[in-house]
Amino acid sequence: MGVGNATGCRAWAGSVSTAADSMICRMRTPFSLTTCAIAAILGLTACATSTGTGETTPTAPSPAVSSPAVQSPQPAASAKVDAKAVLAKLTAAKVGLTRGAVQNEDTDPNNLLGRPNGYTSRASADLPGGDTTSDRYGIDRGLVIEVFPSAADADRRSTYIQGLLKNAPILGTEYHYRTGDGTVLVRVAGRVKPTAAKKIEQAVTQV
Protein backbone atom coordinates (compact mmCIF):
# COMPACT_ATOMS: atom_id res chain seq x y z
CA MET A 1 0.00 0.00 0.00
CA GLY A 2 1.29 3.38 -0.89
CA VAL A 3 1.73 6.36 1.27
CA GLY A 4 -1.32 7.98 -0.29
CA ASN A 5 -3.41 4.96 0.41
CA ALA A 6 -2.10 4.78 3.97
CA THR A 7 -2.92 8.40 4.56
CA GLY A 8 -6.36 7.95 3.10
CA CYS A 9 -7.00 4.97 5.33
CA ARG A 10 -5.96 6.84 8.43
CA ALA A 11 -8.22 9.78 7.46
CA TRP A 12 -11.09 7.40 6.86
CA ALA A 13 -10.43 5.60 10.09
CA GLY A 14 -10.29 8.92 11.96
CA SER A 15 -13.52 9.98 10.39
CA VAL A 16 -15.15 6.72 11.41
CA SER A 17 -13.77 7.03 14.99
CA THR A 18 -15.02 10.61 15.27
CA ALA A 19 -18.47 9.64 14.04
CA ALA A 20 -18.56 6.72 16.45
CA ASP A 21 -17.48 8.88 19.36
CA SER A 22 -20.13 11.43 18.47
CA MET A 23 -22.78 8.75 18.39
CA ILE A 24 -21.61 7.34 21.72
CA CYS A 25 -21.70 10.82 23.26
CA ARG A 26 -25.23 11.37 21.99
CA MET A 27 -26.25 8.02 23.42
CA ARG A 28 -24.54 8.57 26.77
CA THR A 29 -25.56 12.21 27.37
CA PRO A 30 -29.22 11.63 28.45
CA PHE A 31 -28.15 8.80 30.72
CA SER A 32 -25.38 10.90 32.23
CA LEU A 33 -27.71 13.85 32.83
CA THR A 34 -30.27 11.58 34.47
CA THR A 35 -27.57 10.00 36.62
CA CYS A 36 -26.27 13.40 37.68
CA ALA A 37 -29.76 14.63 38.53
CA ILE A 38 -30.44 11.58 40.72
CA ALA A 39 -27.07 11.98 42.40
CA ALA A 40 -27.79 15.62 43.09
CA ILE A 41 -31.13 14.78 44.70
CA LEU A 42 -29.55 12.05 46.79
CA GLY A 43 -26.80 14.45 47.75
CA LEU A 44 -29.27 17.04 48.96
CA THR A 45 -31.12 14.42 50.94
CA ALA A 46 -27.92 13.18 52.46
CA CYS A 47 -26.98 16.72 53.45
CA ALA A 48 -30.12 16.95 55.58
CA THR A 49 -29.15 13.93 57.66
CA SER A 50 -25.36 13.74 57.50
CA THR A 51 -22.47 16.00 58.46
CA GLY A 52 -19.42 16.68 56.38
CA THR A 53 -17.53 13.97 58.27
CA GLY A 54 -20.09 11.33 57.41
CA GLU A 55 -21.55 11.26 60.92
CA THR A 56 -25.31 11.21 61.17
CA THR A 57 -26.79 14.14 63.04
CA PRO A 58 -29.66 13.01 65.33
CA THR A 59 -32.97 14.51 64.39
CA ALA A 60 -34.45 16.72 67.13
CA PRO A 61 -37.72 15.28 68.48
CA SER A 62 -40.86 17.22 67.79
CA PRO A 63 -42.00 19.21 70.81
CA ALA A 64 -44.77 17.44 72.69
CA VAL A 65 -48.09 19.20 72.57
CA SER A 66 -49.40 19.36 76.11
CA SER A 67 -53.11 19.32 76.67
CA PRO A 68 -54.50 21.91 79.07
CA ALA A 69 -54.96 20.50 82.54
CA VAL A 70 -58.54 19.66 83.32
CA GLN A 71 -59.43 20.97 86.74
CA SER A 72 -61.88 19.04 88.85
CA PRO A 73 -64.84 21.09 89.88
CA GLN A 74 -64.53 22.27 93.43
CA PRO A 75 -67.32 21.74 95.71
CA ALA A 76 -69.22 24.87 96.49
CA ALA A 77 -68.53 26.22 99.93
CA SER A 78 -71.53 25.94 102.21
CA ALA A 79 -73.03 29.27 103.22
CA LYS A 80 -72.63 30.01 106.91
CA VAL A 81 -76.00 30.29 108.64
CA ASP A 82 -76.93 33.09 110.99
CA ALA A 83 -79.43 33.25 113.84
CA LYS A 84 -82.15 34.71 111.62
CA ALA A 85 -81.93 31.76 109.19
CA VAL A 86 -81.98 29.22 112.03
CA LEU A 87 -84.99 30.93 113.61
CA ALA A 88 -86.83 30.77 110.28
CA LYS A 89 -86.14 27.05 109.90
CA LEU A 90 -87.23 26.22 113.44
CA THR A 91 -90.38 28.28 113.00
CA ALA A 92 -91.15 26.44 109.75
CA ALA A 93 -90.69 23.13 111.59
CA LYS A 94 -93.74 24.04 113.74
CA VAL A 95 -92.18 23.22 117.09
CA GLY A 96 -94.21 25.84 118.96
CA LEU A 97 -92.12 29.01 118.49
CA THR A 98 -93.90 32.35 118.74
CA ARG A 99 -92.81 35.99 118.87
CA GLY A 100 -89.46 35.26 117.24
CA ALA A 101 -87.01 38.16 117.13
CA VAL A 102 -83.46 38.82 115.96
CA GLN A 103 -81.28 40.87 118.30
CA ASN A 104 -78.73 43.55 117.46
CA GLU A 105 -76.05 45.21 119.56
CA ASP A 106 -78.66 47.47 121.16
CA THR A 107 -81.12 44.73 122.11
CA ASP A 108 -78.71 41.93 123.02
CA PRO A 109 -79.28 41.31 126.76
CA ASN A 110 -75.85 39.73 127.23
CA ASN A 111 -73.82 42.39 125.41
CA LEU A 112 -71.87 39.68 123.58
CA LEU A 113 -73.03 40.29 120.01
CA GLY A 114 -70.08 41.14 117.76
CA ARG A 115 -67.72 41.46 120.71
CA PRO A 116 -64.51 39.50 121.40
CA ASN A 117 -65.27 35.91 122.49
CA GLY A 118 -68.94 36.58 121.76
CA TYR A 119 -71.42 35.39 119.14
CA THR A 120 -71.87 36.78 115.65
CA SER A 121 -75.68 36.73 115.67
CA ARG A 122 -78.49 36.04 118.13
CA ALA A 123 -82.24 35.39 118.04
CA SER A 124 -84.92 34.46 120.57
CA ALA A 125 -88.48 33.15 120.69
CA ASP A 126 -91.23 32.18 123.12
CA LEU A 127 -92.08 28.53 123.75
CA PRO A 128 -94.97 26.88 125.62
CA GLY A 129 -93.78 26.38 129.18
CA GLY A 130 -91.53 29.41 129.14
CA ASP A 131 -92.03 32.45 131.35
CA THR A 132 -93.64 35.09 129.16
CA THR A 133 -93.37 37.68 131.94
CA SER A 134 -89.58 37.59 131.95
CA ASP A 135 -87.22 39.82 129.95
CA ARG A 136 -88.28 40.25 126.31
CA TYR A 137 -85.29 38.49 124.73
CA GLY A 138 -84.18 36.33 127.65
CA ILE A 139 -83.79 32.56 127.75
CA ASP A 140 -86.53 32.19 130.37
CA ARG A 141 -89.15 32.92 127.73
CA GLY A 142 -88.33 29.70 125.92
CA LEU A 143 -85.54 29.65 123.33
CA VAL A 144 -82.35 31.48 122.36
CA ILE A 145 -80.17 30.95 119.26
CA GLU A 146 -76.50 31.97 119.39
CA VAL A 147 -74.16 31.66 116.39
CA PHE A 148 -70.38 31.64 116.92
CA PRO A 149 -67.33 31.99 114.63
CA SER A 150 -66.26 28.42 115.37
CA ALA A 151 -67.52 25.22 116.95
CA ALA A 152 -64.93 25.61 119.70
CA ASP A 153 -66.40 29.00 120.63
CA ALA A 154 -69.91 27.54 120.81
CA ASP A 155 -68.67 24.63 122.89
CA ARG A 156 -66.92 26.98 125.30
CA ARG A 157 -70.12 29.04 125.72
CA SER A 158 -72.25 25.94 126.36
CA THR A 159 -69.76 24.54 128.87
CA TYR A 160 -69.65 27.86 130.73
CA ILE A 161 -73.44 28.15 131.04
CA GLN A 162 -73.98 24.55 132.05
CA GLY A 163 -71.23 24.91 134.65
CA LEU A 164 -72.93 27.94 136.19
CA LEU A 165 -76.33 26.22 136.28
CA LYS A 166 -74.88 23.08 137.82
CA ASN A 167 -73.16 25.04 140.57
CA ALA A 168 -76.24 27.23 141.21
CA PRO A 169 -79.38 25.11 140.73
CA ILE A 170 -81.53 28.06 141.78
CA LEU A 171 -80.80 29.56 138.35
CA GLY A 172 -82.69 26.73 136.68
CA THR A 173 -81.66 24.41 133.85
CA GLU A 174 -81.31 24.51 130.06
CA TYR A 175 -81.36 22.08 127.15
CA HIS A 176 -78.49 22.71 124.73
CA TYR A 177 -78.51 21.59 121.09
CA ARG A 178 -75.93 22.10 118.33
CA THR A 179 -76.18 22.17 114.55
CA GLY A 180 -74.13 19.87 112.36
CA ASP A 181 -71.12 22.18 112.00
CA GLY A 182 -71.21 22.95 115.72
CA THR A 183 -71.20 26.74 115.36
CA VAL A 184 -74.83 27.23 116.36
CA LEU A 185 -75.93 26.82 119.98
CA VAL A 186 -79.68 26.49 120.52
CA ARG A 187 -80.63 26.99 124.16
CA VAL A 188 -84.05 25.91 125.46
CA ALA A 189 -85.35 26.89 128.89
CA GLY A 190 -85.54 24.03 131.38
CA ARG A 191 -89.20 24.86 132.05
CA VAL A 192 -90.12 23.59 128.59
CA LYS A 193 -91.46 20.03 128.68
CA PRO A 194 -89.02 17.31 127.58
CA THR A 195 -91.30 16.15 124.74
CA ALA A 196 -91.40 19.68 123.31
CA ALA A 197 -87.64 20.05 123.75
CA LYS A 198 -87.13 16.77 121.90
CA LYS A 199 -88.98 18.14 118.89
CA ILE A 200 -86.71 21.16 118.87
CA GLU A 201 -83.65 18.91 119.06
CA GLN A 202 -84.83 16.98 116.01
CA ALA A 203 -85.51 20.21 114.12
CA VAL A 204 -82.03 21.54 114.95
CA THR A 205 -80.41 18.49 113.35
CA GLN A 206 -82.07 19.50 110.08
CA VAL A 207 -80.57 22.99 110.06
Rank of each mutant, 00 (worst) to 15 (best):
G8L: 15
C9A: 14
W12F: 04
D21W: 00
M23A: 07
I24K: 11
T29W: 15
F31N: 15
C36K: 05
S50Y: 12
G54I: 10
E55N: 06
T56M: 12
T57R: 14
T59L: 08
P63Y: 02
S67L: 10
P68L: 08
A69D: 03
V70E: 07
A76E: 04
A76S: 05
A76K: 10
V81M: 00
A83C: 06
V95S: 08
A101D: 04
D106K: 08
D106R: 09
N110K: 03
L113Y: 07
G118W: 14
Y119G: 10
Y119C: 06
G130R: 01
D131E: 12
T132L: 07
T133K: 07
T133C: 01
D135N: 04
D135M: 09
R141A: 01
R141M: 07
L143G: 01
L143N: 02
V144N: 02
E146Q: 05
P149G: 12
S150H: 13
A151D: 02
A151F: 10
A151I: 04
A152E: 15
D153V: 08
A154W: 05
D155K: 06
I161V: 03
I161A: 02
I161R: 04
L164N: 03
A168H: 15
A168M: 03
G172W: 00
G172C: 07
T173G: 00
Y175V: 11
T179Q: 07
G180L: 07
D181C: 05
D181W: 11
V186T: 09
R187T: 12
G190T: 14
R191N: 15
A196R: 06
I200N: 02
V207T: 11
